[in-house]
């Protein structure tokens, strides 16, 4: 049922993409993330699992500084991308976010056409020189997000007119279109049927050859299917982090075990 764990040596060869040390996040007085230390590898899919409200989204949002947009939110600690402190004053969050893309927990298509939704990022970052190139990027991204067949005849209709699951895939296509180095996906399949889910999982697997992917999911099966590493969060702390196969077959912490076997969460 689970992927065979990669051998230790194989893992060691991979570079560290994100390294977080002693990360604390506060919403006003609420201490939402406590003492998180983690190294996320390049060209790897990392899954964040844990009960609702444990801080998965919050930690994910630290990685591309989306928490900056929340007034009451305060992030402490040290998070490095390719060895560079992303909370350093000299770092431009705009450039960071171009490198670290994000698919949000709630689908949030822009009130624009499907085409313009996907073309938004490439246009801003000047990824296409001609209309033809842009068309190509849009088609490729929609195909990767498994939305092309449904959307190809209605590219000019508003993205907000799609169904919930279609909107979710549109947001995935939108994020993929900017070619980020890291893609953060917050429950990208929560509204998808099994077929679309498996297509998105294929996409994630596909992305792994070039990028790193971090995915938050409530589905153990999905975590086991797509990820190589898994982090288990509980009440704001990262309880356990390791090989996905290891976490699912032989967790070290009993909280992890109870969550996986369905006793807490």
């Amino acid at each position: 049922m689970y992927d065979t764990p990669n051998s230790e040596r194989d893992v060691d060869q991979k570079e560290i993409k994100f390294s977080a040390r002693d990360v604390q996040v506060f919403y006003g007085d609420t201490h939402a993330i406590k003492d998180v230390d983690v190294d996320l590898e390049d060209k790897t899919v990392t899954a964040f699992i844990g009960p609702s409200g444990c801080g998965k989204s919050t930690f994910l949002r630290c990685l591309n500084r989306m928490n900056d947009t929340i007034d009451v939110c305060r992030v402490e600690g040290d998070i490095r991308l390719d060895g560079e402190d992303i909370y350093d004053k000299r770092v431009d969050p705009v450039q960071l976010r171009a490198k670290v893309g994000m698919v949000f927990q709630k689908p949030n298509p822009f009130p624009k056409s499907i085409y313009d939704n996907v073309a938004y990022g490439p246009k801003i970052h000047g990824l296409a020189r001609t209309k033809g190139e842009l068309d190509e990027i849009v088609e490729k991204s929609l195909r990767r997000a498994a939305l092309w067949d449904e959307a190809k005849d209605r590219l000019e209709t508003p993205g907000t007119g799609l169904s919930g699951g279609q909107q979710q895939r549109l947001c995935i296509a939108r994020a993929v279109a900017t070619e980020p180095e890291v893609l953060l996906m917050d429950e990208p399949c929560s509204a998808l049927d099994p077929i679309a889910t498996s297509q998105v999982e294929e996409l994630i697997d596909d992305l792994r050859s070039n990028f790193s992917v971090v995915i938050v999911t409530h589905s153990m099966q999905q975590a086991a299917r797509v990820s190589q590493k898994t982090a288990f969060f509980h009440l704001g702390s990262m309880v356990e982090f390791g090989e996905t196969g290891h976490i699912f077959t032989n967790p070290n912490d009993e909280r992890t075990e109870s969550y996986i076997t369905g006793r807490i969460g």
Binding site: N64, Q95, R97, A98, F110, Y120
Partner: peptide, 27 residues
């Protein structure tokens, strides 16, 4: 205009000005 729309645009690496002109104002 919902914050989630702004987040979506900022999350794609758009600047605040781009977000306002292309997402917030049209909405």
């Amino acid at each position: 205009v919902p914050q989630s729309l702004r987040d979506g645009s900022l999350g794609l690496g758009a600047t605040k000005a781009e977000t306002i002109r292309q997402v917030v104002l049209p909405a």
